Simulated scan of single mutants.
Amino acid sequence: MRDGFEEAYEQAPRPKLSYPFEHGPETGQAIDIAPGVKWLRMPLGGSLAFINVWAIEEEGGWAIVDTGMGGPDTQQAWRKAFAESLGNRPVTRVFVTHMHPDHIGMAGWLTRKFQCRLWITRLEFLMCRSLAADTGREAPADALNFYRAAGWDEEALENYRAKFGGFGRGLHALPDSFRRLNDGDQIEIGGRTWQVVVGSGHSPEHACLWCPELKLFISGDQVLPKISSNVSVFPTEPDGDPLTEWLTTLEAIKGRVPDDVLVLPAHNAPFHGLHARIDHLIGGHERGLTRLRALLVEPKRAVDAFPVLFRRKIDEWVLGMATGESLAHLNCLLARGEAVKETDSAGVVWYRAAA
């Protein structure tokens, strides 16, 4: 569920982004980004190493944006941050950009510890609760048929069965209530107005926060400077078209948020160059769609698309993300009328370019 690949498969030169901070904060430490806004990092396992979180000073304490993965390591990091960087002042409210565990994982711990409210969009909250409810459940037949249709062999399906239901393990128990964020909301945080800018594709209703006065844009996973957020089709909505949603909302963000903001992403470092980065992300997916159309001169399964979409070897650890993203590209081509599909007698789906 997390952001996956460095750049999925790129041939065009990267845009020249600028990074005003030479180094990021150490665990427990904070860097001042703007008046009343601090940058902190929470530890993650794997290649990403950490997630950026943000503290905005307001009357009575700190509004926190994103929380880190649930677990004792993140708890310890937060305790250190409160003691060393946040003056042991309380959390007034917790904003979460979206429902992935590295973003919402500690929301329950923080809101209970400080008796404050979670602020999140409705779809992200409800989807998170739905996925958390799968913890300990056996993999459903629908999901197994979904991945079998994509071309998975029995070994891959057995690995999926063994790992299914792990989403909730990255979460402290979720709060039982929330304050809803809506696209376009104007919210006062720390005496300044922040606008909610919602995107989708990586997650259902991802909330970014934009402060025109400070020229800051907290982008979460919607715009990252060095990696491409995973955009996937999942068994719960096999006919979904998240890539079209992703491309459409990136264009919308470019039209709403000016280029002179400092982008505060969930991963990597704060950067200038929002519009160039959005153009690069859109262009990369369009080039992937072009390569995929060329591949479909002969019928192919979803797993056969990996070589034209990803540079890296697809092993068992990223097979789910890679399959989901391949299906996102294939469903986008279907929606554009540029591909057709048919299912064989074994339940495997084959795609080919439309005549």
Rank of each mutant, 00 (worst) to 15 (best):
D176M: 04
S177R: 15
F178G: 00
F178A: 09
F178R: 03
R179N: 06
R179H: 15
L181K: 00
L181D: 05
N182W: 07
N182E: 10
D183I: 03
Q186D: 07
Q186E: 08
Q186R: 12
Q186C: 12
I187V: 15
I187A: 15
I187E: 04
I187D: 02
E188T: 06
E188H: 06
I189C: 05
I189D: 13
G190M: 12
G190S: 12
T193E: 03
T193K: 14
W194Q: 05
Q195C: 04
V196T: 02
V197K: 02
V197F: 09
V198W: 02
G199F: 11
G199Y: 05
G201A: 14
G201M: 09
H202F: 09
H202G: 13
H202N: 08
S203R: 01
S203M: 07
P204N: 03
E205N: 11
A207G: 01
A207D: 11
A207Q: 04
C208N: 07
C208G: 14
C208Q: 10
L209S: 09
L209W: 07
L209P: 00
W210P: 02
W210M: 12
C211S: 12
P212G: 00
E213V: 15
L214Y: 00
K215I: 08
L216W: 10
L216G: 14
F217W: 02
I218K: 00
S219A: 01
S219V: 03
G220W: 07
D221L: 02
D221T: 08
V223H: 02
V223P: 01
V223F: 10
V223D: 06
L224M: 10
P225D: 09
P225V: 04
P225W: 01
K226F: 03
I227E: 10
S229G: 10
S229I: 04
N230M: 05
S232R: 15
S232A: 15
S232N: 15
V233M: 12
V233N: 12
V233F: 15
P235Y: 14
P235H: 14
P235D: 13
T236C: 11
T236I: 13
T236S: 15
E237Q: 08
P238N: 08
P238R: 04
P238I: 05
P238T: 01
D239S: 14
D239K: 13
G240K: 11
D241L: 04
D241N: 14
D241R: 02
D241C: 14
D241I: 13
P242V: 06
L243I: 11
T244H: 00
W246T: 08
W246E: 03
L247Y: 07
T248Y: 15
T249S: 12
T249W: 06
T249E: 07
E251Q: 15
E251W: 09
A252Q: 11
A252R: 11
I253R: 02
I253E: 01
K254N: 06
G255R: 03
G255T: 08
G255A: 09
R256A: 09
P258R: 01
P258T: 14
D259F: 08
D259V: 01
D260V: 11
D260S: 05
D260Y: 06
V261D: 11
V261C: 06
L262C: 15
V263R: 06
V263K: 11
A266M: 02
H267M: 07
H267Q: 13
N268P: 05
N268M: 01
P270I: 00
H272N: 04
H272Q: 10
G273L: 10
G273H: 05
